[in-house]
């Protein structure tokens, strides 16, 4: 079974969000272990750029494995403040430690949005 940490929030598109989702706060975003397992070994991540405006549910990058490619959605609206450049050389971090070294980008949130809690996400992937 894939791990679903209790202290994170989740989108139905299999992103996790760490931090307070409220205007002005910066949150960290990655994809869940469930999503990483379904993709297989990630070999390439197309990251958004710092300063990009993103909207919740909008495509802001791509995650490519040998078997498949998946679009990367922003789970929140706001402005990209950082991207995990280390993924360019070590995209496998998304598989190896999806909730830590495999983080993908940080967003300064511009508006409230309701996300799934761990229990709701666990039900979503059950």
């Amino acid at each position: 079974m894939s791990s679903v940490p209790a202290d994170l929030l989740y989108s139905a598109e299999h992103e996790w969000v760490s931090g307070d989702v409220e205007p002005g706060s910066v949150v960290t975003v990655g994809i869940t272990e469930h999503a990483a397992k379904a993709l297989g070994d990630v070999v390439f991540v197309e990251l958004p750029s710092v300063g990009d405006k993103v909207s919740a549910g909008q495509v802001c990058g791509e995650i490519e494995s040998s078997k498949a490619v998946s679009e990367l959605y922003s789970p929140v609206s706001g402005t990209i403040t950082a991207v995990n450049e280390a993924l360019s050389d070590e995209p496998a971090a998304i598989n190896d430690e999806p909730y830590e070294g495999g983080w993908i980008f940080k967003v300064e949130v511009s508006e409230d949005i309701e996300l799934l809690d761990a229990d709701a996400y666990a039900d979503h992937i059950a």
Partner: peptide, 8 residues
């Protein structure tokens, strides 16, 4: 479809 990982 895979065990340890496709690339490995």
């Amino acid at each position: 479809v895979r065990y340890a990982g496709d690339v490995a």
